[in-house]
Amino acid sequence: MTKITYREAVRAGLREALQGDPRVFLMGEDVGKYGGTYACSKGFLEEFGPERIRDTPLSESTFVGAGIGAALGGMKPIVEVMTVNFSLLALDQIVNNAATIRHMSGGQFSIPLVVRMATGAGRQVAAQHSHSLEGWYAHIPGITVLAPATVTDARGMLLAALQEPDPVFIFEHAYLYPLEGELDESALPVDLIHAAIRRAGSDISLITFGGSLWKALEAADQLAHEGISAEVVDLRILRPLDISTVWASVRKTHRAVVIDEGWRTGSFAAEVSAQIMEGAFFDLDSPVARVCSVEVPIPYPKHLEDAALPQPEKIALTVRNVLGG
């Protein structure tokens, strides 16, 4: 085990990918000369050269679409969309092309494309830079949606994604980049199939992903002091969802809280909650609860932003309500 930051883990994954396969290249805004908005590709331009580290103009729709085309043409592009907020400009290429071409062509064409982007709020960058839209992307059949929350997944999921024949979207919570974690070398290569139990418990299941994992774990810590044993499930892969692991956890604890930084209505938490109801209804001792973002554009001031987002205290409170009710 070595301690590294999430940023270093992403960087390590990118580096291995670029070293391991000459078809792999990285393109996106400011990945080269600037060194990557989150410094994940600092020094890469010098190391791998401008053919493989490509700074793009501010043209999200076109460089994501070009990623699709390059993948169709036999390359293995890693496209970095600076943040999920700007990926909205590329939605047409993602939803209408990346996700459909294999099926629509009767299986003739493959798009081995990896798209990475930062996601999430919590850094006081206001409404237009704080979206959490992983749940939206998870709505789309034809793409795989990953939410690495640990440094091991940050590195390993990227490498695993490059082995996939179909488009994979990786959401890196912007809050995580500077955080340190233990890189578990023994866990490599990571699988893109299973959710993970990050903390075992017996009284309630906290089901979450991405940046919210750490908040759920913090809540579980608080609750442990009160004698409440919370199990924390990290979904890891939002599409295709490993609901079996969720059901198994709920069968053990009989209670569930789903935590999701997306807005509550139509959230990924809503999907998880529905699937628990479909598959584990009779194992539940109380209704599934959700902790999501308040349904407002995320405000700039810290007190309002904090209040808008899921927080460990809110999660713990929700757990107490579920157990008390």
């Binding site: 700007f86 237009q128 830079h129 700039y300 001031p301």
Partner: peptide
């Protein structure tokens, strides 16, 4: 009202429509 911060100045009386931070 402090909701936007540096990137999102608005002022209706002066017909100042932001403060829009998605490029283009």
């Amino acid at each position: 009202r402090g909701r936007g911060g540096s990137m999102h100045f608005f002022d209706a009386t002066r017909r100042f429509y932001g403060g829009l931070a998605i490029v283009g």
